[in-house]
């Protein structure tokens, strides 16, 4: 696989936090490539560093050592403001607890990241409607998060993540708070994003059934990658 097809390149990354005088090593000499269009699942015990790794790839935090590249951008060298601007166009983030803004309607929540892009209001509207149609919520435009079920809220969260047409979609336990039926719908939706829109998706999960939807599953243990299960269907 040629290097230029790898959309995410993690090179010898260390990440540690300091708690008081104590240094906690969370990720140790971790390297990882994610090719464009892959649906990658990250598994591992609690505290193994999955969220930390995901945050680094999504540009929410910077590594203590090592480099992270996404496309042609070396995000490990960016400032906080640069990362914020970069995230707008390049990352769609899906949270376990949806994290929709309670004061905004479904429509407005999806529109929120678009406010940061130079788009006309007609363009914005078109994009929001497309995203909400994709998650089959066109009939709930003006509902607030409090008026939606967990599964519906997560679908709004997904619409918000894809509305800017990002390079990368990252999801941290997106089904962790849902019953199995809603979880299944969300996973199907993510698979659709990969198959039909050729999106690159990185998903952290504890659920082996969720991981089955992915094209590859990586196991993380104490800050190191231990198993690399490549799903057979990947070319």
């Amino acid at each position: 696989m040629a290097a230029d097809e790898e959309i995410v390149r993690v090179r010898n990354v260390h990440k540690y936090f300091t708690r008081g005088s104590e240094r906690v090593d969370v990720l140790q000499d971790l390297s990882l490539n994610v090719p464009e269009g892959e649906f990658l699942a990250l598994m591992g015990p609690s505290g193994s560093g999955k969220t930390t790794l995901l945050n680094l790839i999504a540009g929410l935090d910077v590594p203590s050592e090592g480099e992270i590249w996404v496309g042609n951008d070396r995000i490990s060298a960016m400032s906080e403001s640069q990362l914020a601007t970069w995230r707008t166009r390049n990352v769609g983030f899906i949270f376990q607890f949806y994290h929709l803004l309670p004061v905004l309607t479904a429509y407005e929540n999806v529109e929120l990241p678009l406010l940061l892009l130079p788009l006309s209001s007609a363009d914005r509207k078109q994009r929001v409607m497309t995203a909400l149609e994709l998650v089959e919520l066109s009939s709930r435009l003006h509902h607030r998060p409090g008026q939606l079920s967990g599964g519906q809220q997560q679908r709004v969260g997904i619409a918000r993540a894809i509305v800017t047409d990002p390079t990368l979609i990252v999801a941290d336990e997106p089904t962790g708070d849902l019953d199995s039926r809603s979880a299944d719908e969300i996973l199907k939706l993510l698979a659709t994003l990969q198959h039909e829109l050729q999106k690159t998706i990185i998903m952290v999960t504890h659920d082996p059934k969720a991981a089955e939807r992915a094209s590859r599953t990586l196991h993380l243990e104490k800050g190191r990658l231990v198993v690399d299960t490549r799903a057979p269907q990947l070319k």
Binding site: A58, L60, E80, S81, A84, T85, W86, R87, T88, R89, F93, F95, H99, L101, P102, L112, P113, L116, R160, T164
Partner: peptide, 13 residues
Amino acid sequence: KEIAVMKVLGFTP
């Protein structure tokens, strides 16, 4: 939390 979410979406400091 909301402020953090906005930051995730790309709102700068």
